[in-house]
Design a protein around this nucleic acid. Structure first.
Lengths: 230, 230
DNA sequence: CGCTCGGTTGATGCACATCAAAGGCTGTGG
DNA sequence: CCACAGCCTTTGATGTGCATCAACCGAGCG
């Protein structure tokens, strides 16, 4: 709780709570706790009873589902400001449809489920903010589906660009997420080897540069060029 | 309006408005109009300004996005009871992210955008219903992504089964949507020919039966069997 | 020091796309 | 009433992008 108190200023800065007073936010997050997760640590698992929802504060989480053959599939990359599990709070006995796994050290504001009905749903402005967030997430899924028939290099390019767009603030061309080739593969339904072959090529051509799981996009235009007709 | 009056009983039956009184529904749908669309006629196009949202009453709509090479990609199949464009109503100047195209003759209750903020957002029970609908839609997208690496026949099987599950009421094994092989292909990012090859095989084996764009699933177990390990 | 994890490279094969050609069915206009 | 155009379906021949299998290296870590 005390930690929550301290983080209120930070929490306040997210678009979700735009325009809300400090006390109002404190009310909304009542009984909430800040959870700190390590690399590869899970926030919640698919199938678990969902007693809480929450807000990504820092770092990143990958949202995963197990597939038929056991290998996980990454459904979405969540970055700071994202709301998790809000959609299912309305169910009578909600269960998490996906697992949330930390990518690098991350922080999450975990809020008890009852707050959702008690205070969150009452604020129409808040609901609109949540729906806007969900809207971008839905659109991202649609976009990815659109690339289903595109060659693999176009898919990877599209993913990198969309990740890059997540940090509008910074002019940096560095992806805001520490991401491995395997995770890229799992996100697109491709094999690691194929992803590596394509990205190694890009490295040689100086289009991208990888250091310690941080991917820097040097020549964005080249990637954008790949999105078109091939 | 008069037509709306007449259809109120029908509208009332959808889960969205579960437990609401007739007058309340009338208030929510104020200024709404019932739109009747023919086969392949569009309800709205991707990119248009979104002045209204609404509810699918009968028939079905496919939600499409144009892909890079011009060929459309089907993102979702909407059936009666589904809410369209609700998520984006919160944006300051919303545009439809997708096109909605009628599959066979269908009916849609078109509701002006202003109602959303004025009356819809005020009803927390209604919002929960909408979020539940969106939740299923999101989960469907996730499910499909999970099948990305599965062989084509498993993907088609999964699609047919999920469509079949949409009409829980009826025991019928007939898909609630008149759907062509091309549409199946466009929904999964496959070629028409491949879809046809697989489904022809199924027809010969008596697993499915097609008559006039109505697909009947004769042996569901066989399809379910395909979902597993290949 | 063995372990796991991430990255890399090459050889081989298959599931699917692509191209081509044709027939049925429906609506439409001369 | 027939011709023609679109749309859906079908089948075969041919090619290829990517998966799969196998092996190896370097780095961090208990």
């Amino acid at each position: 709780m005390s930690s929550l108190e301290a983080a209120l200023a930070e929490i306040q800065s997210f678009s979700l709570f735009h325009g809300l007073a400090r006390e109002e936010i404190a009310k909304l997050c009542e009984e909430g706790r800040i959870v700190v997760t390590d690399h590869r640590q899970s926030l919640f698992e698919a199938g678990e009873e969902a007693h809480s929802f929450g807000l990504v504060l820092s770092g990143a989480y990958k949202l995963c589902r197990p597939s038929a053959d056991g290998t996980p599939v990454i459904v979405y990359f969540s970055t700071p400001g994202d709301v998790l599990a809000a959609l299912i709070m309305g169910h009578p006995e909600p269960r998490y449809p996906i697992s949330a796994i930390s990518m690098g050290p991350s922080r999450f504001l975990r809020i008890p489920r009852r707050n959702y009905k008690l205070s969150w749903l009452q604020r129409t402005d808040l609901i609109m903010q949540i729906q806007n967030l969900l809207s971008t997430r839905m659109v991202t899924l649609h976009d990815q589906k659109t690339f289903n028939r595109a060659p693999l290099n176009a898919k990877i390019a599209a993913l990198l660009i969309s990740l890059l767009e997540k940090n509008k603030d910074q002019r940096e061309s560095i992806l805001p997420i520490p991401i491995t080739r395997k995770e890229i593969a799992e996100s697109m339904g491709a094999s690691v080897e194929s992803v590596i072959r394509i990205m190694s090529e890009w490295s040689k051509e100086g289009i991208i540069h990888t250091t310690d799981h941080q991917i820097a996009i040097i020549k964005v235009d080249r990637l954008i060029g790949l999105l078109k007709v091939t």
